[in-house]
């Protein structure tokens, strides 16, 4: 009885401790004074995290937009409301699907790679060597990756929405023969720039911080063995997916749900 209570206590203490460590880590590295070559390092990471993720994000966005239009059209046409297709595609992409799916893909494509890279640096003692020669690994290794993630994911989300809306247009108007004017017209009259596009962007910025933070911290904090690296990579994907989906509900409730 007392033993199980103590185990629960130890679990709670450990969880709080690692949360505190992760918070301090985020603060220290995100607001570290940028070094002179910081911009170059950031560009290199932007290339890896952003430009190279573009293909998977855009292709997924295209197919999700196409599927939305296909499903939406067959359902809406039963109510004679197929002119509301553009509105449905645009709102569901801008508010929910683009931020969430782009963040999930980002966690799988870029987050896991960040964890593995930093983890291997730690396992091969590159991080401690940097400290030995007086280079702060938080500034040199972690901060550029963190900021690259913060900037890249919102941009990827915009790309996802644009390509998805175009994919919906392709299926709904070009292939199924919906009316082009009502696709764009209903969309324009129902989408508000600040409420829909803006809140979607806020969501994706929150997801960017959470996903990149989890990925980088898991890499920095892992047990430096080959097993530790594989565990940490898995944890990155699992934790960031759960965090994105859970936070998405909270953010949706605050932004659109009228729960308060």
């Amino acid at each position: 009885m007392i033993g199980s209570l103590r185990r629960l206590g130890r679990f709670g203490c450990n969880a709080l401790e690692s949360l505190g460590r992760a918070g301090g880590f985020l603060l220290l590295s995100a607001f570290a004074v940028p070094s002179r070559e910081g911009f170059g390092l950031w560009v290199r990471q932007m290339h890896f995290v952003g430009v190279l993720s573009l293909a998977i994000v855009l292709v997924s966005g295209l197919f999700i937009g196409m599927v939305l239009a296909l499903q939406g059209y067959t359902i809406l046409v039963e109510f004679g409301a197929e002119q509301a297709l553009g509105q449905m595609v645009a709102l569901s992409l801008l508010r929910e699907l683009a931020p969430v799916v782009a963040a999930l893909l980002f966690a799988g494509r870029a987050g896991s790679a960040l964890t593995a890279e930093i983890g291997l640096m730690k396992a091969t003692e590159q991080l401690s060597s940097m400290e030995m020669i007086g280079v702060d690994p938080l500034r040199r290794v972690v901060a550029p990756r963190l900021w690259a993630g913060f900037v890249a994911l919102p941009l990827l989300t915009v790309g996802f929405s644009v390509v998805g809306i175009w994919g919906g247009y392709l299926v709904g108007v070009e292939w199924l023969g919906g009316f082009e004017g009502s696709y764009w017209g209903n969309m324009q009259s129902s989408v508000e720039f600040l409420d829909d596009v803006g809140n979607g962007m806020i969501k994706s910025m929150v997801f960017a911080v959470v996903v990149t933070w989890i990925a980088v911290f898991q890499g920095y904090d892992l047990i430096p063995t080959s097993e530790g690296i594989s565990r940490a990579t898995t944890r990155t994907v699992v934790y960031s997916s759960l965090a994105v989906l859970g936070l998405d509900f909270v953010l949706t409730a605050v932004m659109f749900g009228g729960l308060s």
Binding site: V158, S161, V162, W184, Q188, V191, E192, F193, V197
Partner: peptide, 9 residues
């Protein structure tokens, strides 16, 4: 694009 074409500003 999202501003001009989708939300019709």
């Amino acid at each position: 694009f999202l501003g001009l074409r989708v939300s019709g500003m």
